[in-house]
Design a protein around this nucleic acid. Structure first.
Lengths: 349, 349
DNA sequence: ATGAAAGCGCTAACAT
DNA sequence: ATGTTAGCGCTTTCAT
């Protein structure tokens, strides 16, 4: 498929005008079947494929969308969450014939440098932005740039923006309720970074569950930490002196660290401390014992984000839409429940 | 920065021709300093930024490069290797003012669908392709498309292609020699998938080390497996009956699984079995005990791949260049060496 | 040093 | 149903 082939050349070889060739190329109407077929044959024979940039310039749309992962994720790229999200987004891009441009904003300098490229209409038809930390104004800036934007996760300033989120409150609520039902009273939580809405919402779900069960909310049982293995390890070390019976941990990766701290202290899971975590990513299966965890549909989440973005691109940003995705509890060993549910979907890793 | 601003408009406001405005924009020569400054002021005041697509069409280069991760990586996205590589590539793209397009070829169908977009000159100035499996002809196809290509990892059919690789043979050799020096004789290996050059090379390094030490190569001590936790787990289960004193494992993630199998068998690391693995990614620090492992400079590897690609874009594919990157042994607990080296660089995770 | 003019390869409004 | 004609917004000869 030689690159020097142009639509003009195709038209010439098929004995039609470039317009007609273009119509055939784009499955447009008003072409006699026999002519259409003739042009299609030439296209097939030559292996012609239209120049995407020329097409973009003329049609004013690039069929490229961006995925923006704010700099907080430099740390978090060690969390399988982001690869999984990226996979979902990439798959949706394939399915809808878009190309995915990836922007990792690892430093403030990166952000400044990349911002014009992000906001400038032309290269990108729209962007999916991972919800950032509380201080981040990236999303707000992007919104004023009149480029179609969808946020993955609940943004801090919801304003007039469309976003997809997982119902973190209910997810956490369900996880904690599970621990209550197993008879635990002194339930602690290792929350994530309070600069993220995900951590805030999961903490809220934890508190709500305790309240609904008439259990006291004990601030000394609530520990924050980074969403990393080390973060979970350190948080659990701080928590151990409080002698919790059970802990709800805001991510699988943190749970890995927490387990390490518990084992080092000579305690066992679930006999001495029961654990429920969040994500249901590969670490949940690798952990010893395997983790009872709140499953998030991260892959589908990425797909939905793209689908919502395509809608915004098509129909404009008004009215903003919010899509909420559901979680489900996956019961394994770390909670100590007798039930041992068979779990599918994590075989390949 | 309104998008409807064009270079014509900038030129008009600055009282010059579009050509001159373009010269200023691109830091071209032959502009009077005072004129240059005037145009620059208008650009700054208006927040003008050139339309990237129009620019691409006229200049015949998009300043977009692709990163292609073949479908094998669907499984491997659970290995921190790929996020790390992606990060390196993304950073280099930022540094050199390129935009990164990510192509995840998760199925054969994806590959077919995306291939035209990959090979067609126009959208992409070039691609970095992760070396695939032995059957993959993707790289060969891409090479015939006359799009600049660089392979990350040694490809199976080296042919006339430029690639960056880590010296896997020497890396593995060093790791195994370390075990020999610690006094071990009966050293096994958990190799990766023999469909990849990385696994082949590491196995070769293992064999070479044994030979150089006059140790026998015992086929029953060589076990293959997928580059995953489960793969390592299963491989170690098969290996345990052979009673190895030490094991060289081809990736940290596999080592995690191997540790699990060893612990389940009631054995201890390093007392009963010493381990050296490969990668030096976060799992090496999370593991209990922490892993002695062969460090690969994956991030730099991604950067080098981009730099090499930019060279190919600039100077053409001839002559093909091969860049080899060095590894280093990081000594921690799993090998049982008394030495306990302080390790930096993995703090953030 | 500056500008006029010719593309880059395509889409799309407007004839016919 | 088909073709003619303008663009899309920029870079780049080629004059001047």
């Amino acid at each position: 498929m030689p690159d020097n082939l142009t639509l003009d050349e195709i038209a010439r070889r098929a004995g039609v005008s470039r317009t007609t060739a273009s119509r055939v190329l784009n499955n447009g109407p008003n072409v006699r079947p026999e002519v259409r077929e003739r042009v299609q044959r030439v296209i097939a024979e030559t292996g012609y494929s239209p120049h995407p940039v020329a097409r973009s310039l003329a049609s004013q749309q690039s069929r490229v969308i961006g995925l923006v992962l704010p700099r907080r994720t430099e740390v978090l790229f060690n969390d399988p969450y982001f690869p999984r999200l990226t996979q979902g987004v990439a798959q949706a891009c394939n399915d809808y014939d878009y190309t995915l441009a990836l922007f990792l904003l690892q430093t403030a300098a990166d952000e400044e440098k990349l911002y014009p490229r992000l906001s400038r209409k032309g290269l990108l038809d729209g962007v999916v932005v991972q919800a950032g930390q509380i201080g981040d104004d990236l999303i707000m800036r992007l919104l004023t740039s009149n480029l179609p934007v969808v946020v993955a996760g609940r943004p801090f300033h919801p304003g007039e923006v469309s976003y997809v989120d997982v119902d973190n409150v209910t997810g956490a609520y369900t996880g904690v309720m599970h621990l209550v039902k197993l008879g635990h009273q002194r339930i602690a939580t290792i929350a994530g970074e309070m600069e993220t809405t995900a951590a805030l919402d999961r903490k809220a779900g934890y508190c709500q569950a305790l309240q609904d069960c008439n259990l006291p909310i004990d601030e000394s049982l609530i520990v924050e930490g980074y969403f990393t293995e080390i973060g979970g390890y350190q948080a659990m070390q701080r928590l151990l002196p409080q002698k919790p019976e059970a802990v709800f941990i805001a991510s699988d990766t943190m749970a890995l660290g927490a387990l390490r701290a518990i084992h080092e202290a000579g305690l066992r899971v679930p006999q001495d401390i029961a654990i429920v975590s969040y994500d249901d990513l590969p670490p949940a299966m690798i952990a010893q014992p395997q983790l009872t965890t709140v499953h998030q549909p991260i892959h589908e989440f990425g797909i939905k984000a793209v689908e919502l973005l395509l809608e915004v691109i098509k129909n404009g940003p008004i009215p903003p839409r919010q899509i909420m995705m559901e979680t489900s509890l996956v019961i394994r060993q770390s909670c100590g429940a007798a039930t041992r549910e068979v779990v599918n979907g994590l075989n390949g890793f």
